[in-house]
Design a protein around this nucleic acid. Structure first.
Lengths: 252, 252
DNA sequence: GCCCATCTGTGCGATATGTCAACAACGGTT
DNA sequence: AACCGTTGTTGACATATCGCACAGATGGGC
């Protein structure tokens, strides 16, 4: 089977692109705005939006389009197909309870990590994280362990993008991060000290399936109290490694 | 402007339908399976799936298709456009902390409620709820307050569907539920006693915007301990009504 | 009110897409 | 091995869709 150009449906690709033009900054868009954001012709964008409205994925007041909760179904369809969230959630709750801090599981999507399960204990971060939330991989503990598991070429590729300093602690040099990835790979965990947000530390380990492939990452987030990082590792790592072993047995 | 048939893009509608054929029961589908589930021609379904794969929304191993986390972007795009979740989350956390039980905010999508924000305190329900999760409206406290706010015709329409008894306590008669909706409307809150799951009670109030329109619902879930429902109401309702008033001021 | 800029809606030709039917490949059954 | 039903793939043709260009609509500034 050869995937020819004839097998690609432009209309579908364009419609999905239009959905993705809706962001927190632009929750309501006119046809022209969406067209500009998607880099498409207005006429085509109009047809996409009218189709979305007709199918119940968007609302239209005659001037502006907004997405409806129906769109959430698409994402939910995706989360539901992942065995991971349901399997780790109860176990995550228990672990989080035991250690008294928030823990999460995320997967890698391109240059971003995507939260798929979370057990929140107290609020450390300024932004609320929930399943579906995204953060850049390069400056997060879970991102580091998953980047470390990639072939070096791919990691290098992801780190070739812009790496903004989210705090004064953020590593922004691709070379330095690659070096850190090597260490993460060797020691089997990653520790982050306020690189994503001031006052926040986190520690992550990879989640492997039964075949030993890294499929996700598990982390704990905790307030930065000035104690040495090593004591954080000593405190959290053992329980996390236990979890890693358990998960590995149950993940096909 | 008249929405003619000419303005609908069949390909987009079909592609979205294909995405929705992926469920927890069918996380991996062959072309023929997806075609059967979507009620479409195999050739068309194949082009949809190949397009999704080409755009990064699906993976293809030559035999089976699976959705990728990229699809979550679509849902996330939608959640991000809602001002509600970000606005209520901090406040939800505080309220939940104060009363020591889990609280959530959901919106109505057809016959289902969709969780958009949640502050979990302890585990009462067997299933993990998170933003994007869905439950039927007819047997949930948040569903009841939102159904009560609809024009009667629409509520009747939603209750015309199958209403399975999730527990022995579940109201399954549309007439009885409509009667309950009238009471909910009059008293301004809904209380559910183990209708969705044994051992779980919940109480909900509508969330109004500044114009007085019901845009969401706020609830508390708690374990059923056999105390009279009235004492539950006395304990939780005052704080919830305070929240309702606060939210009303800030929601445009 | 008038002008200008921008937007939405629409006709049209070129092109892509949907549907149907046919066909080859595959796996299971007898 | 021949048979069967199913699946993935391809070709052909009718039809839908794209993107362009234009007309009418809208709104802001003065």
């Amino acid at each position: 089977m050869t995937i020819t150009e004839r097998d690609i449906m432009g209309g579908l690709a364009k419609g999905l692109a239009v959905i993705e033009t809706f962001t927190a900054d632009r929750p309501r868009q006119s046809i022209a705005e969406a067209a500009a954001a998607a880099g498409m012709d207005r006429a085509t964008t109009r047809r996409c939006l009218l189709t979305l409205a007709h199918q119940g994925y968007a609302d239209y007041d005659g001037k502006f389009f907004t997405l409806t909760p129906r769109v959430l179904r698409l994402g939910t369809a995706c989360l539901a197909t992942m065995p991971l969230p349901q399997m780790v959630q109860p176990w995550l709750d228990a672990l989080s309870e035991e250690l008294g801090e928030s823990s999460s599981v995320s997967i890698l999507d391109g240059a971003e990590i995507v939260y798929v399960a979370r057990a929140a204990q107290r609020k450390v971060m300024s932004i609320a994280l929930m399943p579906g939330s995204r953060l850049p991989a390069y400056c997060t503990s879970m991102g580091r362990v998953m980047l470390a598991a990639l072939p070096e070429v791919q990691a290098r590729d992801i780190l070739a993008a812009e790496l903004p300093a989210r705090t004064s602690h953020t590593l922004t040099d691709a070379g330095a991060i690659l070096q850190e990835l090597a260490r993460v790979r060797a020691q089997g965990y990653a520790v982050i000290d306020q690189e994503v947000e001031l006052g926040l530390r986190s520690i992550a380990v990879p989640v492997l399936n039964a075949r030993g492939k890294v499929v996700a990452a598990l982390n704990f987030g905790l307030p930065a109290r000035g104690e040495p990082l090593q004591s954080v590792v000593d405190h959290y790592l053992p329980a996390m490694l236990r979890g890693q072993t358990e998960l590995r047995r149950v993940l096909r």
